[in-house]
Protein backbone atom coordinates (compact mmCIF):
# COMPACT_ATOMS: atom_id res chain seq x y z
CA UNK A 1 0.00 0.00 0.00
CA UNK A 2 1.31 3.46 -0.87
CA UNK A 3 -0.68 5.41 1.71
CA UNK A 4 -2.88 4.29 4.54
CA UNK A 5 -4.61 6.75 6.78
CA UNK A 6 -6.59 5.39 9.70
CA UNK A 7 -8.87 7.24 12.08
CA UNK A 8 -6.89 10.47 11.74
CA UNK A 9 -7.69 13.25 14.20
CA UNK A 10 -5.84 16.54 13.96
CA UNK A 11 -6.13 19.85 15.75
CA UNK A 12 -5.01 23.33 14.95
CA UNK A 13 -4.85 25.80 17.76
CA UNK A 14 -6.89 23.48 19.91
CA UNK A 15 -9.68 23.09 17.37
CA UNK A 16 -10.30 19.69 15.87
CA UNK A 17 -10.32 19.84 12.07
CA UNK A 18 -9.84 16.21 11.08
CA UNK A 19 -12.20 13.97 12.95
CA UNK A 20 -11.44 10.36 12.25
CA UNK A 21 -10.44 10.36 8.62
CA UNK A 22 -9.57 7.18 6.74
CA UNK A 23 -8.11 6.77 3.25
CA UNK A 24 -6.16 4.13 1.38
CA UNK A 25 -4.18 4.73 -1.80
CA UNK A 26 -2.50 2.02 -3.84
CA UNK A 27 0.50 2.59 -6.12
CA UNK A 28 -0.51 4.05 -9.46
CA UNK A 29 -3.90 5.27 -8.31
CA UNK A 30 -5.32 8.76 -8.65
CA UNK A 31 -7.70 9.84 -5.90
CA UNK A 32 -9.67 13.04 -6.09
CA UNK A 33 -10.75 14.75 -2.90
CA UNK A 34 -13.61 17.20 -3.04
CA UNK A 35 -15.51 18.96 -0.32
CA UNK A 36 -16.81 22.35 0.78
CA UNK A 37 -14.57 25.21 1.89
CA UNK A 38 -13.18 24.68 5.35
CA UNK A 39 -13.92 20.97 5.43
CA UNK A 40 -10.25 20.09 6.05
CA UNK A 41 -8.77 19.26 2.63
CA UNK A 42 -5.70 21.46 2.98
CA UNK A 43 -5.37 20.35 6.58
CA UNK A 44 -5.17 16.76 5.41
CA UNK A 45 -2.58 17.69 2.79
CA UNK A 46 -0.50 19.60 5.35
CA UNK A 47 -0.67 16.82 7.93
CA UNK A 48 0.57 14.29 5.37
CA UNK A 49 3.41 16.65 4.39
CA UNK A 50 4.32 17.17 8.05
CA UNK A 51 3.41 20.72 8.84
CA UNK A 52 4.23 21.17 12.50
CA UNK A 53 1.49 23.48 13.66
CA UNK A 54 -1.04 20.67 13.37
CA UNK A 55 -1.33 18.30 16.26
CA UNK A 56 -2.29 14.75 15.48
CA UNK A 57 -4.15 13.39 18.49
CA UNK A 58 -5.28 10.02 17.20
CA UNK A 59 -4.84 7.68 14.30
CA UNK A 60 -1.98 6.92 11.97
CA UNK A 61 -0.56 7.57 8.55
CA UNK A 62 1.52 4.88 6.90
CA UNK A 63 3.54 5.54 3.77
CA UNK A 64 4.88 2.35 2.20
CA UNK A 65 4.22 0.75 5.61
CA UNK A 66 6.32 3.29 7.45
CA UNK A 67 4.88 5.53 10.15
CA UNK A 68 4.95 9.01 8.63
CA UNK A 69 3.97 10.87 11.76
CA UNK A 70 7.40 10.34 13.28
CA UNK A 71 9.20 11.98 10.39
CA UNK A 72 10.20 15.60 9.82
CA UNK A 73 8.75 17.29 6.71
CA UNK A 74 12.09 17.04 4.88
CA UNK A 75 12.34 13.32 5.63
CA UNK A 76 8.89 12.79 4.17
CA UNK A 77 9.87 14.72 1.06
CA UNK A 78 13.07 12.70 0.81
CA UNK A 79 11.00 9.51 0.92
CA UNK A 80 8.88 10.72 -1.98
CA UNK A 81 6.01 12.82 -0.70
CA UNK A 82 5.32 16.00 -2.61
CA UNK A 83 2.76 18.65 -1.78
CA UNK A 84 1.81 21.15 -4.45
CA UNK A 85 0.65 23.99 -2.22
CA UNK A 86 -2.72 25.65 -2.52
CA UNK A 87 -0.89 28.89 -1.78
CA UNK A 88 2.74 28.59 -2.94
CA UNK A 89 5.07 30.68 -0.81
CA UNK A 90 7.13 33.56 -2.19
CA UNK A 91 10.78 33.46 -1.16
CA UNK A 92 12.59 36.64 -2.15
CA UNK A 93 16.34 36.31 -2.56
CA UNK A 94 16.51 32.63 -3.59
CA UNK A 95 16.25 31.87 -7.27
CA UNK A 96 14.02 29.06 -8.43
CA UNK A 97 17.01 27.27 -9.91
CA UNK A 98 19.10 27.50 -6.73
CA UNK A 99 16.17 26.36 -4.66
CA UNK A 100 15.54 23.35 -6.91
CA UNK A 101 19.19 22.40 -6.96
CA UNK A 102 19.21 22.41 -3.16
CA UNK A 103 16.06 20.32 -3.11
CA UNK A 104 17.21 17.82 -5.74
CA UNK A 105 20.56 17.36 -4.02
CA UNK A 106 19.07 17.12 -0.53
CA UNK A 107 16.87 14.30 -1.73
CA UNK A 108 19.76 12.60 -3.50
CA UNK A 109 21.91 12.91 -0.40
CA UNK A 110 19.20 11.33 1.73
CA UNK A 111 19.17 8.42 -0.68
CA UNK A 112 22.94 8.11 -0.47
CA UNK A 113 23.45 9.39 -4.00
CA UNK A 114 26.07 11.86 -5.16
CA UNK A 115 24.97 15.44 -5.77
CA UNK A 116 23.98 16.17 -9.35
CA UNK A 117 26.50 18.33 -11.18
CA UNK A 118 25.50 21.60 -12.80
CA UNK A 119 25.47 20.22 -16.30
CA UNK A 120 23.10 17.37 -15.57
CA UNK A 121 20.98 19.57 -13.39
CA UNK A 122 20.55 22.06 -16.23
CA UNK A 123 19.65 19.27 -18.61
CA UNK A 124 17.05 17.97 -16.19
CA UNK A 125 15.62 21.45 -15.75
CA UNK A 126 15.37 22.02 -19.47
CA UNK A 127 13.57 18.75 -19.93
CA UNK A 128 11.05 19.43 -17.16
CA UNK A 129 10.54 23.07 -18.06
CA UNK A 130 9.03 21.94 -21.33
CA UNK A 131 6.57 19.77 -19.50
CA UNK A 132 4.69 22.70 -17.98
CA UNK A 133 5.84 25.47 -20.28
CA UNK A 134 8.13 27.27 -17.85
CA UNK A 135 10.58 29.64 -19.47
CA UNK A 136 14.17 30.26 -18.48
CA UNK A 137 13.57 33.68 -16.95
CA UNK A 138 11.15 32.12 -14.48
CA UNK A 139 13.83 29.76 -13.21
CA UNK A 140 16.16 32.69 -12.61
CA UNK A 141 13.64 34.74 -10.68
CA UNK A 142 13.20 34.42 -6.93
CA UNK A 143 10.95 31.54 -5.92
CA UNK A 144 7.36 32.54 -6.75
CA UNK A 145 8.13 36.21 -6.15
CA UNK A 146 5.81 38.31 -8.23
CA UNK A 147 4.58 35.24 -10.10
CA UNK A 148 0.97 35.40 -11.24
CA UNK A 149 -1.44 32.98 -9.61
CA UNK A 150 -1.27 30.66 -12.60
CA UNK A 151 2.52 30.85 -12.82
CA UNK A 152 2.81 29.83 -9.19
CA UNK A 153 0.68 26.77 -9.82
CA UNK A 154 2.67 25.80 -12.90
CA UNK A 155 5.84 26.27 -10.89
CA UNK A 156 4.56 23.77 -8.32
CA UNK A 157 4.09 21.16 -11.03
CA UNK A 158 7.50 21.99 -12.45
CA UNK A 159 9.04 21.35 -9.03
CA UNK A 160 7.08 18.13 -8.78
CA UNK A 161 8.47 16.97 -12.09
CA UNK A 162 12.00 17.86 -10.98
CA UNK A 163 11.75 15.98 -7.70
CA UNK A 164 10.18 12.82 -9.11
CA UNK A 165 8.10 11.93 -6.04
CA UNK A 166 6.09 8.75 -5.31
CA UNK A 167 3.02 10.39 -3.80
CA UNK A 168 1.90 13.69 -5.27
CA UNK A 169 -0.63 15.77 -3.39
CA UNK A 170 -2.12 18.54 -5.50
CA UNK A 171 -4.01 21.04 -3.39
CA UNK A 172 -6.29 22.99 -5.73
CA UNK A 173 -3.61 23.25 -8.36
CA UNK A 174 -6.37 24.01 -10.86
CA UNK A 175 -7.74 27.09 -9.14
CA UNK A 176 -6.57 30.29 -10.75
CA UNK A 177 -5.48 28.60 -13.97
CA UNK A 178 -6.77 29.78 -17.32
CA UNK A 179 -8.11 27.21 -19.75
CA UNK A 180 -4.80 26.71 -21.56
CA UNK A 181 -2.78 26.53 -18.36
CA UNK A 182 -5.21 24.00 -16.96
CA UNK A 183 -4.62 21.79 -19.96
CA UNK A 184 -0.85 22.24 -19.71
CA UNK A 185 -0.80 21.38 -16.03
CA UNK A 186 -3.10 18.39 -16.52
CA UNK A 187 -0.92 17.11 -19.36
CA UNK A 188 2.13 17.50 -17.15
CA UNK A 189 0.47 15.48 -14.42
CA UNK A 190 -0.74 12.83 -16.85
CA UNK A 191 2.77 12.49 -18.26
CA UNK A 192 3.93 11.67 -14.75
CA UNK A 193 1.29 9.05 -14.07
CA UNK A 194 2.84 5.65 -13.68
CA UNK A 195 2.22 2.40 -11.92
CA UNK A 196 4.44 3.29 -9.00
CA UNK A 197 3.34 6.87 -8.51
CA UNK A 198 0.10 7.91 -6.86
CA UNK A 199 -1.83 11.16 -6.77
CA UNK A 200 -4.15 12.85 -4.31
CA UNK A 201 -5.89 15.60 -6.21
CA UNK A 202 -7.80 18.16 -4.16
CA UNK A 203 -10.17 20.15 -6.31
CA UNK A 204 -13.49 21.97 -6.33
CA UNK A 205 -14.12 21.46 -9.99
CA UNK A 206 -15.17 18.50 -11.98
CA UNK A 207 -13.53 20.11 -15.01
CA UNK A 208 -10.01 19.18 -13.86
CA UNK A 209 -11.14 15.60 -13.55
CA UNK A 210 -12.03 15.55 -17.24
CA UNK A 211 -8.32 15.96 -17.86
CA UNK A 212 -6.88 14.06 -14.93
CA UNK A 213 -9.23 11.14 -14.74
CA UNK A 214 -9.32 9.78 -11.19
CA UNK A 215 -9.72 6.20 -10.11
CA UNK A 216 -11.66 7.30 -7.04
CA UNK A 217 -13.45 10.39 -5.82
CA UNK A 218 -13.98 11.13 -2.13
CA UNK A 219 -16.01 13.77 -0.41
CA UNK A 220 -14.42 15.30 2.65
CA UNK A 221 -16.93 16.94 4.94
CA UNK A 222 -16.37 18.22 8.45
CA UNK A 223 -13.11 16.39 8.84
CA UNK A 224 -14.16 13.00 7.55
CA UNK A 225 -14.54 11.19 4.25
CA UNK A 226 -18.30 10.90 4.06
CA UNK A 227 -18.66 9.49 0.58
CA UNK A 228 -16.44 7.70 -1.87
CA UNK A 229 -17.09 6.59 -5.41
CA UNK A 230 -15.71 6.60 -8.91
CA UNK A 231 -15.40 9.55 -11.24
CA UNK A 232 -19.15 9.69 -11.70
CA UNK A 233 -19.44 10.94 -8.14
CA UNK A 234 -17.76 14.17 -9.20
CA UNK A 235 -20.40 14.68 -11.88
CA UNK A 236 -23.12 14.04 -9.40
CA UNK A 237 -21.65 16.57 -6.99
CA UNK A 238 -21.36 19.14 -9.75
CA UNK A 239 -25.04 18.69 -10.43
CA UNK A 240 -26.44 18.46 -6.92
CA UNK A 241 -23.97 20.47 -4.81
CA UNK A 242 -22.82 19.65 -1.30
CA UNK A 243 -26.26 20.12 0.26
CA UNK A 244 -27.04 16.74 -1.09
CA UNK A 245 -24.11 15.24 0.85
CA UNK A 246 -24.89 17.25 3.93
CA UNK A 247 -28.48 15.99 4.11
CA UNK A 248 -27.22 12.53 3.33
CA UNK A 249 -24.69 12.85 6.13
CA UNK A 250 -27.36 13.89 8.66
CA UNK A 251 -29.52 10.97 7.69
CA UNK A 252 -26.72 8.47 8.12
CA UNK A 253 -25.79 9.77 11.56
Amino acid sequence: MMLEIRNLHALIEGREILKGLGLTVKPGEVHAIMGPNGSGKSTLASVIAGRENYEVTEGEILFNNENLLELAPEERAQKGIFLAFQYPVEIPGISNATFLKEAVNSIRKAKGEKPMDSKHFLQLMQEKMKLVNIDKTMTQRSVNEGFSGGEKKRNEIFQMAMLDPRLCILDETDSGLDIDALRIVANGVNAMRSKDRSFLVVTHYQRLLDYIVPDFVHVLYEGKIVKSGTKELALELEEKGYDWIKSHETVSQ
Binding site: A49, G50, R51, E52, N53, A72, P73, E74, R76, A77, Q78, F82, L83, F85, P88, V89, E90, I91, P92, G93, I94, F99, E102, A103, S106, I107, A110, S142, Q159, L163
Partner: peptide, 27 residues
Protein backbone atom coordinates in the same frame (compact mmCIF):
# COMPACT_ATOMS: atom_id res chain seq x y z
CA UNK B 1 7.48 29.78 9.09
CA UNK B 2 5.58 29.35 5.82
CA UNK B 3 8.76 29.75 3.82
CA UNK B 4 10.59 27.39 6.15
CA UNK B 5 7.94 24.72 5.74
CA UNK B 6 7.94 25.23 1.99
CA UNK B 7 11.68 24.54 1.79
CA UNK B 8 11.47 21.56 4.11
CA UNK B 9 8.55 20.14 2.17
CA UNK B 10 10.94 20.04 -0.79
CA UNK B 11 13.39 17.87 1.11
CA UNK B 12 15.79 20.54 2.41
CA UNK B 13 16.70 19.90 6.02
CA UNK B 14 15.77 22.42 8.65
CA UNK B 15 19.20 23.83 9.45
CA UNK B 16 20.00 24.26 5.78
CA UNK B 17 16.57 25.74 5.05
CA UNK B 18 17.08 28.33 7.78
CA UNK B 19 20.55 29.17 6.48
CA UNK B 20 19.16 29.61 2.96
CA UNK B 21 16.42 31.92 4.17
CA UNK B 22 18.88 33.98 6.17
CA UNK B 23 21.23 34.31 3.21
CA UNK B 24 18.25 35.32 1.08
CA UNK B 25 17.29 37.92 3.66
CA UNK B 26 20.83 39.27 3.61
CA UNK B 27 20.78 39.49 -0.17
Amino acid sequence: SNALFYLRARGINEQRARALLITAFAS
